[in-house]
Structures are given as structure tokens and as C-alpha cells.
Design a protein around this nucleic acid. Structure first.
Length: 83
DNA sequence: CGTATGACGTGCA
DNA sequence: GTGCACGCCATAC
């Protein structure tokens, strides 16, 4: 998958613990800042172990969503951000 | 190729 | 601060 999705996953994969990037940021790093929507779409359909997709939130600060429940996402963010 | 979908973003009421 | 509409993009069918 050497496409936009691949880059998105790659970027998200590089997000350090305690750090969170907005879909827009990820999209920009992936090559298209306007593809924020596509980013979420890709993460949603392509959840892979090693991809801390829970570290990707909306630009307005909202957790957005999560395959396993945004509640879990918030928890993970809290834990990683807490330390 | 055209249509439909979606973890988004921004603007406006 | 909240809710709604429009725009933008990648992927699936």
C-alpha cells in the first residue's frame, strides 16, 4: 500500500508517547493537509497493532472517535499524557 | 468513472 | 459553547 494511507499509518506510528497529532496535522505530514477526512477514514478501516491511532485527535481538541470506543481512547490519552 | 461513506475542518447562527 | 451546513479527500462498490 504505497499510498496516502500508508503514509498516514507511518506518521501515526511515529507519534511519541504522550504526544497527540490532529487529523489535519497527520494529513499534512502524509502530504495532504486537506485530507483530514481521509485520514480518519483510513485509520478506521486500517487499524493495525503498533499504530497508536488513539493519539490522533481532532484539531479542536475533541478525541474524535475510536474503533474500540472513544472512552478507551480518552483513557489511553490520559494515561500516556499523565506520566 | 460516478456514487456513497466517514475517527475531519472551518464558518456561521 | 453548541449545532448545522458546506467543503475536501481517500477508499469501497
Amino acid at each position: 500500500m504505497k499510498t496516502f494511507s500508508r503514509k498516514v499509518l507511518d506518521v501515526v506510528k511515529k507519534i511519541p508517547r504522550g504526544e497527540v497529532l490532529s487529523y489535519k496535522e497527520v494529513a499534512r505530514l502524509a502530504g495532504n493537509e486537506k485530507a483530514s477526512r481521509a485520514v480518519g477514514n483510513i485509520l478506521n478501516k486500517n487499524y493495525d497493532p503498533g499504530i497508536p491511532c488513539h493519539r490522533v485527535i481532532r484539531s479542536d481538541g475533541s478525541v474524535g472517535g475510536y474503533n474500540r470506543g472513544k472512552k478507551e481512547k480518552e483513557r489511553l490519552l490520559k494515561i500516556e499524557n499523565r506520566t
